[in-house]
């Protein structure tokens, strides 16, 4: 079946958090604690067992220093004219970036790879889903995820994350977050189409002078083989709390097994050596 996914275009995110609420209403996700975090308008903090969509709020100085891993910044904000920037003394001189984060539904998903029970599985839509009737709460997927997405709900014992609304997909419906998103910052569809659309959008933004715009997770050759849910970002990934170059841990698994085999042999050797010595 066609691979389905999300394209989250953060350049049109208004930070309304409809995605967070719509997700919770549909998936019956409990609240994640009522804590005033003092981190701009973000009082959710991060994705987790009880937050499957998380809107990050980043306040950055206009034309602020860009980290080396991001494309060069020419000091312009999305869509603002150069003249506007030159006259910026009256404005807040700040950019407010908002981005709705979600499970990436990786092509090479570490959580899925390491799950010992098959609770995590790849669906017919090429999404990665936890089967709550199977999960025994071993927790292995939690540290395996390079994005810190999946987590255990302590009150429940199992792990939870975005299912890309597996049940809705099976009923030919749009995932709750994408459906609610007022500005269609969150777009759902066949991944190929989304990538085309994203490339087009990137072109438009670049042409408009938003040179810092870039796609995150749209490359099949990245460390996780591309994301099923990818992003258009206006700053370096780490600014939004995303890893700049995530790699699926199981990529190194063969090397690990080899090292383990070596170590096992060494153990056998040592034991043999210890026992072989004449008494």
């Amino acid at each position: 079946m066609t691979r389905m996914g999300f394209f989250t275009d953060t350049s049109i995110c208004i930070g309304c958090k409809a995605c967070e609420v719509a997700c919770k209403e549909w998936n019956d996700v409990p609240d994640d604690g009522l804590n005033f975090l003092g981190t701009s308008y973000d009082n959710t903090g991060a994705l987790g067992a009880d937050t499957w969509r998380h809107v990050a709020f980043v306040e950055r100085p206009r034309g602020g220093s860009a980290p080396p891993s991001s494309p060069p910044v020419n000091g312009q904000d999305a869509g603002s004219s150069p003249a506007a920037d030159a006259l910026d003394t009256g404005s807040a001189g700040v950019r407010w970036l908002m981005s709705s984060d979600v499970c990436k539904h990786c092509t090479h998903a570490a959580c899925l790879d390491v799950c010992p029970t098959g609770a995590l599985f790849r669906t017919e839509f090429d999404t990665v889903v936890v089967q709550q009737d199977v999960c025994n709460g071993c927790g292995y997927c939690v540290p395996a995820c390079p994005f810190g997405v999946i987590d255990k709900r302590e009150s429940d014992g199992r792990v939870w994350k975005c299912t890309l609304c597996y049940d809705r997909l099976k009923s030919d419906m749009t995932p709750a977050c994408a459906k609610a998103c007022p500005t269609q910052s969150i777009q759902f569809g066949p991944l190929d189409e989304l990538r085309d659309r994203a490339a087009g959008r990137l072109g438009v933004l670049r042409e408009a002078g938003v040179s810092e715009a870039h796609l995150y997770g749209a490359d099949d050759n990245d460390g996780v083989g591309g994301f099923g849910a990818f992003f258009l970002l206006l700053d370096a990934p780490e600014v939004y709390g995303l890893p700049p170059d995530p790699v699926v841990t199981t990529r190194d698994l063969p090397r690990m097994w080899r090292a383990a085999a070596g170590a096992a042999l060494a153990l056998v050797g040592a034991v043999a050596a210890a026992c072989a010595r004449p008494r």
């Binding site: 049109i12 208004i14 930070g15 309304c16 308008y41 869509g79 603002s80 004219s81 506007a84 009256g90 404005s91 807040a92 700040v94 950019r95 407010w96 970036l97 908002m98």
Partner: peptide, 14 residues
Amino acid sequence: RFTRTSALADTFVA
């Protein structure tokens, strides 16, 4: 105030 509307506007004037 610089609000979420300002963040998405082409021009913001305080």
